[in-house]
Design a binder for these strands. Sequence first.
DNA 1: CTTATATACATAATAAAATTAGGTATAAAA
DNA 2: TTTTATACCTAATTTTATTATGTATATAAG
Lengths: 113, 113
Amino acid sequence: MVNDNKVIKGSLTTIILKLLEDNGRMYGYEMTKAVKERTNDSINITEAALYPALHKLVEEGLLTTETEIVNGRLRKYYSLTKEGKKETKAKVDALTSALESIQFILNPKLSNG
Amino acid sequence: MVNDNKVIKGSLTTIILKLLEDNGRMYGYEMTKAVKERTNDSINITEAALYPALHKLVEEGLLTTETEIVNGRLRKYYSLTKEGKKETKAKVDALTSALESIQFILNPKLSNG
DNA sequence: CTTATATACATAATAAAATTAGGTATAAAA
DNA sequence: TTTTATACCTAATTTTATTATGTATATAAG
């Protein structure tokens, strides 16, 4: 996942959860486009990383799916379960503070930590 | 590496390079303590992740080592090579912008991207 | 009408990176 | 004398992402 330059691994799951928290319901392909757009092309989630991650989240009970056919093509919508919503908050908080810590190491002057 | 909660992978190499850029010369154990201190215990680099990463950076020609005996114990100091200094700038920039992109997804209101 | 692009899902093999779980050894403090 | 801190290290496993494919429909371009 993430970035043409191959930085930042391990945050894909949290990003997925956050997208679903913000948008209620999304399908995989839509997520890749949303992240690309939101980050001005700097983060590019590959489908090969995304789909297995989504399947794992379903397995873990954090997401549920509904499949629909739209314009003759299949779409698999994902939403957060109750447990998924709780986990989202926890993971977003953890990732946010971890990012701040790393930024503090990289740029102590610009950081607020 | 990094954080008791297992977030943020893939940034260890950049963190090492940045520490050496700031401090000129450090040994492995010192790096783990420095990061722990700088981040108020939130980032905990494990030695099992650190040492292989250091060895790889030496292999790649980005670091050199000098071994000394201090207080009867071995210390292996690492410093940046010329190429290492160049790479540090590139990697710090790349990681910084990647962190910002992710933060923008997690907290659009607080971000400046 | 046919080819290319966009949409939309997916997996298999491999590689990269970190975790878990050890191991060695000296110095200093309890 | 046992524990804690210092200081290095690796092997096996797991996790996560990459590379490389594969299927299939809709739409736009030539």
